[in-house]
Amino acid sequence: MIINHPLLGPRDAAEFVVKGDANLINRPDWQADDAAQQFYEYAYLRDNPAGEHRELWYHEQGDRSWLVVTRNTLTHEVTKVELARDVARAAGRSA
């Protein structure tokens, strides 16, 4: 499998470590009224679709970028690769 790294170009999947559902970026607000419920869902509930899926991959044997890879779990087709940091910022995450 090949992941087209936004900074480094096509790289073999063997250079990466996969973490799973990119929803892990959306860590809840610890001060929300229902924070306990939100954190429970965040920690334990994952989508595992047969089809297009957004996943976190870490370029451990490379530049250490975390990437969000949009991959079809049935065909392994990769349709989009983004820097996770850009995705996180776009989702409104900041310090």
């Binding site: 973490k19 870490y58 975390w66 996770a84 940091r85 995705v87």
Partner: peptide, 16 residues
Amino acid sequence: FRNMEFARQCLWPDMD
């Protein structure tokens, strides 16, 4: 180290 990079890039991306 991997998890700290995750926290740095994905959870708190604007921290210096």
